[in-house]
Nucleic acid binder design. Structure first.
Length: 115
DNA sequence: AGATTGACGACGC
DNA sequence: TGCGTCGCCAATC
């Protein structure tokens, strides 16, 4: 299976902006269904990235073209911003209990499985 | 070129 | 469940 994933994971994101890990993350996050969420770790895992921090770094560059609010921490919490994104998720039907997503595990969208 | 930082995760207590 | 600590790799200073 010569899919994009396998190509991209072997590409070093040094300089080349053409097909970097960032691009793939970008795609992946866009494919997250509305009302569902995933975690940085899951994305990092499916891209074979040793460090989930890279996912977050990548998102910073991507901007608002990507529903970054659907990407949360493994604890089912938002990072970097506890207010705005939470609100967006609530609009999608995601219930919150304080700062924590209700039924996080049930709403979890695993790219390794679903994709 | 070396040190610090950062949209995190796993582990220990 | 919650808090503290370490590791991980790239970007930035």
């Amino acid at each position: 299976m010569t899919n994009k994933k396998e190509r991209l994971i072997s590409v070093k994101p040094s300089g080349k902006k053409d097909e970097s890990v960032v691009e793939l993350i970008h795609e992946l996050v866009r494919q997250i269904p509305r009302g569902r969420v995933t975690s940085y770790g899951a994305i990092a895992a499916v891209l074979n990235l040793p460090n989930p921090r890279m996912v977050g770094r990548a998102m910073r560059d991507v901007g608002k073209s990507v529903p970054a609010q659907r990407v949360v921490t493994s604890s089912g919490r938002l990072s970097h911003d506890g207010g705005a994104r939470k609100k967006l998720l609530q609009q999608e039907g995601v219930e919150f209990k304080g700062d924590r997503i209700v039924n996080f595990k049930g709403l979890f969208w695993d790219p390794a499985v679903e994709l």
